[in-house]
């Protein structure tokens, strides 16, 4: 699929501190890409650079094959964004905010549509200074989406949203992505990102340490089995003796399946050791675990 956003060799230094080291990635049309990383990894810096808000120290950014930089903004005409926190004029209502930034063409229809899908009708005509954090966040997202942009960049969009609003946002993103809109989303709520993103970029200390599809990343982590026995300490020792990959985490025996025979080998070892198995449950690796594993690998 054709890449709508291309970032290559992006470098950024603040003072003496280099925060981005040759960052490369692409976002395909209609794809939802999750940008994940610890605090200070450089997620917001990447997003600001893509939006032409900060100068970079090298590298290229292209949106629909047009370059973007602090002095080249033409390509940003079809981009919507919410960066860090929603900018809200307290003296204006939500509807006035949408009016302010919506393009003239089909303005009323677009505004009415976004109010309806975001579920903002009950407070859209009230002054924004009376909004809760979640309402402001919704308004910020609505502002990013109102013009039906080709590319939407959302920095921590789930902040302050209640569970229903998070689900609504997820549905909106999936619907828009099906219609061809590309999304680059950063979030600390990895379980939510896992549900919505097609691809994932893992960033650490300004380096992209992993770029893959969400499915591949989760599957790469393998499957873990949680085994309950009558005596987990003895079982742990028996499994180690039989060279079965096992961890004792929070008094739980975790067996990571490296091939099809791992679980069989574990059960045989336990039977031979005379330890009764009470329960075996399968735990799929999730994005959070994959992320933590990758970051930990980086540290070592």
């Amino acid at each position: 699929m054709e890449a709508l956003l291309k970032v290559s060799g992006l470098n950024k230094t603040f003072g003496k501190k280099k925060v981005l080291h040759g960052v490369d990635f692409t976002v395909a049309s209609g794809h939802v890409v999750g940008l994940v990383g610890p605090n200070g990894a450089g997620k917001s810096t990447i997003m600001k650079a893509i939006l032409g808000l900060i100068p970079t120290d090298g590298g290229q950014i292209q949106i629909a094959d047009q370059p973007v930089s602090i002095t080249k903004h033409q390509a940003l005409r079809h981009v919507g964004a919410l960066i860090e926190y929603p900018g809200i004029y307290p003296f204006m209502t939500g509807r006035q905010h949408l009016n302010l930034f919506a393009a003239k063409k089909q303005r009323k229809q677009h505004i009415a549509h976004i109010i309806q899908v975001m579920g903002m009708a009950s407070y859209i005509d009230k002054p924004a200074k009376s909004y809760s954090l979640g309402m402001k966040q919704k308004l910020g997202i609505a502002q990013a989406l109102v013009d039906q942009p080709q590319l939407v960049i959302l920095d921590e969009p789930m902040n302050g949203l209640d569970p229903q609003a998070v689900k609504d946002l997820r549905d909106i993103i999936r619907t828009q992505a099906k219609a061809g809109t590309s999304f680059l989303i950063s979030s600390h709520i990895l379980s939510e990102l896992e549900k919505v993103a097609d691809d994932v970029l893992i960033l650490n200390h300004g380096h992209i340490i992993q770029q893959s599809t969400m499915q591949a990343l989760v599957e790469a982590g393998g499957t873990t089995y949680i085994v309950q026995t009558v005596n987990d300490r003895e079982a742990f020792a028996a499994l180690q003796a039989a060279h079965v990959p096992v961890n004792l985490v929070d008094r739980q025996l975790q067996i990571t399946q490296t091939d099809r025979t791992t679980l069989n080998a574990a059960l045989i070892a336990l039977v031979h050791a005379g330890i009764a198995v009470q329960d075996v449950t399968k735990a799929q690796h999730d994005l959070e675990q994959s992320f933590l594993d990758l970051v930990e690998q980086e540290v070592h």
């Binding site: 005409r77 926190y85 929603p86 900018g87 004029y89």
Partner: peptide
């Protein structure tokens, strides 16, 4: 000053304008 206080400056600048 209000654009910086309310954080709205980013919304003005990330569009096609300079």
């Amino acid at each position: 000053a209000m654009e910086f206080q309310y954080g709205t400056i980013k919304q003005l600048l990330y569009r096609k304008y300079y």
